[in-house]
Design a protein around this nucleic acid. Structure first.
Length: 193
DNA sequence: CTACCGATTATCT
DNA sequence: GATAATCGGTAGT
């Protein structure tokens, strides 16, 4: 018998943010294109790199200065999509994640390895080989056609147009400082395999 | 209302 | 290694 598609549920995301970031490696980021559930296209990539961002005690986090309209999802329950527009031309996708004792937190998905719907990912301006198609936070949102209209979606819902599915847990994981930030570089909250 | 600058990327030297 | 592209969120006036 085959095991159907399963998605990490709320408790998975409501743990310490760096732990969630590490455990997301090997899972699948799934984007469903189209309205009709019978002929939706699946754009799927294996999560290969993540970063953890904390709450009001993490100077690198959007949540550092408290709740604002943009970062409000970081203060919500775990497992929701937090998507923001950056540098005037890119989007970044996070999943809200923090323990009950923390007020806020999210995991930035930095890189995925495309495994399904690769043709649809190769939109104009994204015509690259499979490996380089979605190996960056701005590149993977473009490949999966993700923008701010997908902010706040429930990533624990396997029927959601944007969700995360269970996958194969990697054997070896590397931890390194986060990049693209000017503060908070001392903690090794970037994870890859 | 204004000004600054960012969880990036492609391209150039 | 350095820089342009490009614009909305945020803090400050």
């Amino acid at each position: 018998m085959s095991i159907g598609i399963t998605c990490p549920q709320r408790p998975f995301y409501e743990r310490d943010t760096p732990v969630v970031a590490r455990d997301l490696l090997g899972k699948k980021l799934v984007r469903l294109l189209g309205e009709d559930s019978r002929d939706q296209e699946r754009l799927v990539g294996i999560i290969t790199e993540t970063e953890a961002y904390g709450g009001e005690d993490d100077p690198a986090s959007h949540a550092f200065r408290g709740r604002t309209p943009r970062n409000s999802i970081m203060f919500e329950r775990g497992g929701l999509s937090y998507i923001y527009f950056i540098y005037g031309m890119y989007h970044c996708i996070n999943v809200s994640a923090h323990s009950k004792t923390e007020k806020a937190g999210a995991v930035l998905i930095r890189s995925i390895l495309p495994i399904e719907g690769i043709e649809k990912m190769m939109v104009p301006g994204n015509l690259k080989s499979t490996g380089g198609l979605a190996n960056g936070p701005g590149k993977l949102t473009r490949a999966l056609h993700i923008d701010r209209s997908h902010n706040g979606l429930d990533m624990t819902d396997c029927a959601c147009s944007l969700h995360i599915e269970n996958g194969k847990t990697p054997k070896r994981i590397l931890a390194a400082p986060r990049i693209g930030i000017s503060v908070g570089t001392e903690v090794r909250w970037r994870f890859k395999f």
